[in-house]
Computed example of a mutant assay.
Amino acid sequence: MSHLQAVTYHTVTAISSKQWIELECANNAYFSPKFLKAFEVSNPNINFKYIVVNQNSSAIALAIIQTIELSVDVILKNIKLANWLKKLAHSLFCNNSMKIMTNGNIFLSGEHGLYIKEEASKIKTLGTIAEAINNIAKHTKSLHAIVLKDFLKHSLKLTTHFENYGFTEMHVEPNLILELDTNWKTFDDYKKDLKSKYRVKVNKADSSSNSLTARLFTEEDFATYKEELQKLYENTIANANFNAQVLNLDTYIHLREIYHDDFIVKAYFLENKLVGFLSALANNNHLDAHFIGLNYNLNREHAIYPRILNDYVRIGLEKQVSHINFGRTASEIKTTIGAIPVDLTCYIKHKRPFMNRIIKFIIKRVKLKEFKQHHAFKTKKEATKAS
């Protein structure tokens, strides 16, 4: 009978090259040592750990652990709860911050925290990881909660086993995904498949942003505009529904050095003043929108954000990817360019059994904020009629 053993490392560089070769996960950027190191070295306020599961001395799985502190207000900002339940949550945590340990990448939405080799016994390996996570939590002082984040629907038949280790299922806001039709070779091809009113919106975003000068940033530009990029980014996350942590944009410098043209930062200038930017990573035939930044005072007049969304589509077409992951903020406007919501599920627990029962009680009463979903593309019947 094969023996599984979990080993916890406190830095990604402690994982040996032999283990990375055995894992065979580095072709996915989010599980590559260089990507993980870029986040680790640039964000010292976050405590990083890595669990490697070995089977008969060979690495078969990796779990990424990040521990941060969040205010109770930030956590409650994006969920619908009765006022008395919000007051209860504040009283339980004395209106202070909470220390939260996360399996996943706190800066990105999606399955970026857990990797298990295809040939491994999934349930046994997941159980070994869950036990290791619980053991880390046991030895982490002042820890309030553990979150295993962002699992897609097809993963739930496996991840539901986390409930055997004290975790409670929690639905979170969906990712917004745009599938790119293989017939789209240009942005005009994409627009032709939009319904008339959405094509008008896309065209208006481009025409209203004509005053902007856009260019792709180089490594030298990162150094020149670092402080302005950071300010625009922090301005944007301050307006977001939920913000787990502020990313140090030094991370971008490292990612650019690693991924070159596959890590994209496009900047927007108005009369030589930086007023917005987008960032994205092309990874395994898909494009992931990372953080953006913009000047909200100028956004309405110059359509900075709608232009950013248009340009994500353009970049995806240029990179010839199969889909674009827009993340999970500003859901409604993203559906107007054709993105559709894809459900995500997290698992949560408190290290104390009594508190865990209260958390379960609260989670069952949580309602996600609703948004209007637009259906931007023509139906087959409409497309046939138009042609």
Score class of each variant (00 low, 15 high):
267 A>T: 01
216 L>N: 13
74 V>Q: 15
367 K>V: 02
245 Q>R: 10
3 H>W: 12
72 V>F: 08
155 S>E: 15
59 A>Y: 02
25 C>G: 03
246 V>N: 15
219 E>R: 14
99 K>C: 02
276 G>I: 00
386 A>W: 08
157 K>Q: 12
293 G>H: 08
105 N>A: 04
208 S>E: 14
298 L>R: 03
269 F>Q: 06
205 A>Q: 04
38 A>I: 01
327 G>F: 06
200 V>Y: 15
230 Q>S: 09
258 I>K: 12
23 L>Q: 02
108 L>G: 00
265 V>W: 05
332 E>K: 07
327 G>V: 01
315 I>N: 03
123 I>E: 15
325 N>E: 06
210 N>E: 11
170 M>T: 07
254 H>P: 02
87 K>N: 12
139 H>E: 11
305 Y>D: 04
363 I>M: 07
188 D>A: 13
258 I>W: 11
111 E>M: 10
202 V>F: 15
138 K>F: 06
370 E>F: 00
345 T>G: 03
241 N>S: 10
169 E>C: 05
280 A>R: 08
79 I>C: 10
331 S>C: 11
82 A>Q: 15
68 I>N: 05
207 S>Q: 11
183 N>T: 11
77 K>F: 09
168 T>S: 12
266 K>C: 01
336 T>P: 00
145 A>L: 13
165 Y>R: 09
361 F>N: 07
381 K>R: 14
71 S>I: 00
223 A>F: 14
381 K>E: 15
64 I>K: 13
218 T>A: 06
247 L>V: 06
208 S>C: 08
241 N>Y: 13
159 T>W: 08
361 F>C: 05
180 L>K: 11
332 E>G: 09
125 T>V: 06
228 E>M: 09
94 C>E: 13
